[in-house]
Simulated scan of single mutants.
Amino acid sequence: MPSTTVYNQAGEVVEQLELSERVFGVTPNIAVLHQVVTAQLVNRRQGTASTKTRAEVSGGNRKPYRQKGTGHARQGSTRAPQFRHGGVVHGPRPHAYHHDVPKKMRRLAIRSVLSDKVASESLIVVNDLSLETPRTKDMLTILDKLPTADGKKVLMMLPQRDENVVLSARNIATAKVQHVSSINVVELLKHDYVVMPVQTVRWIELVFGEGLSAEEASRAINNSAEETPAAETAAESSSEE
């Protein structure tokens, strides 16, 4: 079963976390990865590029010169493609770019990338990722203490939006923060390191390992987070007795 080291924000080792083999221990499927990445990049295209043909450009209604006797090739309009301001031949026209990929393939691609991150020690798990106030210097300090190489791109995935973390990282060129529900193959491959709290890991295991929906996984994570303080309080009271 795959496992990874859990750090705190000071870069100290806290514990070893066992990961789901169904999510973080699969053999990467390169063919599926290629199809999903291609589809995702294609679906980002707006498809609004447009050009005008010789029938759509303005002007050119009159024959530019007489048919014979000039020594030039015969022309019927100055809006033919060979003239300046003429129409475009076989130019782009607005159309939809869409490549549909089955849900199972998308999830297999994400599991493949996550498994590769674990195998290459590029997945960094922290017990918590939060800041009391938005400050870029504090975020840089956290990233410096974590085992990330200088100049490498870092993707931080949060279980819920934290405005302080978002504001602290937006001026760092090599760092990006996003919600775990926005997880996608392109962003995972684009960044060298992925930093996520333990709650994010559990959310991913519930969605991509157990097959829960994003809403169900979020509710389960929130419920477990609420039950943990109550259990700790009960344990403390029993130890005092």
Rank of each mutant, 00 (worst) to 15 (best):
E15G: 13
E15N: 15
L17R: 12
L17Y: 14
L19A: 12
L19D: 05
L19W: 03
S20K: 05
E21A: 08
E21M: 09
R22G: 00
R22P: 01
R22H: 06
V23N: 04
F24A: 02
G25L: 01
V26R: 09
V26T: 06
V26F: 03
V26G: 03
V26Y: 05
T27N: 05
P28A: 00
N29V: 00
I30F: 04
I30V: 07
V32P: 04
V32G: 02
V32K: 01
L33Y: 00
Q35G: 08
V36G: 15
V36S: 12
V37C: 07
V37S: 02
T38S: 09
T38D: 06
A39K: 10
A39L: 09
A39R: 08
A39D: 12
A39P: 06
Q40M: 11
Q40N: 13
Q40V: 14
V42C: 05
N43V: 04
N43T: 01
N43F: 10
N43Y: 03
N43L: 08
N43A: 04
R44N: 15
R45H: 09
Q46W: 06
Q46S: 14
Q46Y: 13
G47E: 03
G47K: 06
T48H: 11
T48Q: 12
A49R: 03
A49P: 00
S50G: 08
S50I: 12
S50N: 13
S50F: 10
T51H: 06
T51A: 02
K52M: 13
K52A: 12
K52D: 07
K52Y: 10
T53I: 09
T53E: 01
T53S: 14
T53R: 10
T53H: 06
R54F: 12
R54W: 13
R54Y: 14
A55C: 03
A55W: 05
A55I: 07
A55L: 00
E56R: 00
E56K: 01
E56M: 01
V57K: 08
S58W: 09
S58P: 06
S58G: 04
G59C: 14
G59V: 09
G60C: 04
N61W: 10
